[in-house]
């Protein structure tokens, strides 16, 4: 954790130096305890995801110890063992990379595709706008979780298909956000000025409109990752995501949840707690970012 605190302090110092909008936003962000809590949780999970595979070898295919099935938490197995006698803590740590990686990469795809579509719709307007936004309305007519489940049920279970489904259901929100940002920005004086100075449409979009619509997109990305972790876990829980024996939080719950009647609470408690804690971290951070990136709140 020392590294996290150090990184945060370093960045704060960097924010102090220049009075740039980014620096201001960062100062507002770390001033709030909610944001600091979110940052610490998110940083901790990201660190676990990055470090675990480097410092610990794990082969899910050979991991089994039937002599130690369903052992409650002890010193040797702090989170207990599952139905195959596998150490839950070890699998949880390795699952972090899978679960978080799935969520982050699907949101990255959705953010790029969705905002590009939205910028196009808002900039070109007319038929392009109509058609694109109609497609988004169709996607939004489905509850996101249902659409993701149905798509993976059709194309087949697995991580890559989950990635596709979660990206697809996350696209509409970006398209809508970036489109409304373009529509609002194109009426602003500085955009009109850039256009009347002879700036080409493409240049104005890329150098004025896109950078200025980033704040809401950044906030949305944080919140989308929280949502994507939940979606990924739900798919894994239904047996549609990562396939056994790959460790993934939702799949770990699915492996052994039926044993809850025997009182083996640790098999589902820890994977679920990891899901909730990471989602909470991203939600806290997203909420705090929204406040920090809103310049209208100003300095009080």
């Amino acid at each position: 954790m020392a590294t996290v605190a150090g990184a945060v302090r370093g960045a704060v110092a960097a924010g102090d130096r220049g009075r740039t909008p980014t620096g201001e936003a960062w100062r507002r962000l770390v001033a709030s305890p909610v944001a600091r809590a979110g940052l610490v949780v998110v940083a901790a999970f990201v660190l676990i995801a990055m470090i675990t595979p480097a410092v610990h070898d794990y082969d899910a295919k050979t991991d089994a110890n039937l002599m130690a099935r369903l052992t409650p938490p002890t010193a040797a197995h702090p989170f207990g063992t599952d139905t195959l006698g596998r150490d839950i803590l070890v699998r949880l740590l390795h699952a972090t990379r899978v679960s978080l990686g799935l969520a982050v990469s699907s949101v990255a795809i959705a953010a790029v595709v969705g905002s590009t579509l939205g910028f196009l719709a808002g900039y070109l307007r007319r038929q392009v706008d109509l058609v694109l936004m109609f497609c988004m309305d169709i996607l939004l007519a489905f509850p996101a979780t249902l659409l993701a489940i149905a798509i993976v049920a059709m194309i087949g279970p697995g991580l890559r298909n989950s990635l596709f489904a979660i990206s697809l259901v996350s696209i509409p929100v970006y398209a809508r956000l970036s489109r409304s940002a373009v529509l609002a920005l194109r009426e602003q004086d500085f955009v009109i000025a850039a256009l009347s100075l002879g700036g080409s449409g493409r240049r104005v979009v890329l150098s004025h409109i896109v950078p200025n619509s980033l704040p809401p997109l950044i906030v949305q990305t944080t919140l989308s990752i929280a949502f994507a972790i939940l979606e990924a876990a739900a798919l894994g829980f239904l047996g549609l995501g990562a396939q056994p024996p790959t460790p993934e939080w939702g799949a770990m719950l699915a492996d052994s949840y039926r044993y809850f009647t025997s009182g083996a609470w640790w098999v589902f408690f820890f994977p679920g707690a990891a899901i909730m804690l990471s989602v909470l971290g991203f939600n806290l951070l997203g909420d705090a970012l929204r406040d920090a990136l809103d310049p209208r709140l100003g300095r009080e």
């Binding site: 719950l253 589902f268 707690a273």
Partner: peptide
């Protein structure tokens, strides 16, 4: 409320079932 929106409901359901039903 923030914890609530961050909740994997299948996990919460399992915990409720375990606590009130089994324990």
């Amino acid at each position: 409320a923030l914890t609530g929106v961050s909740m994997p409901i299948f996990w919460l359901g399992l915990m409720l079932a375990w606590f009130f039903g089994v324990k």
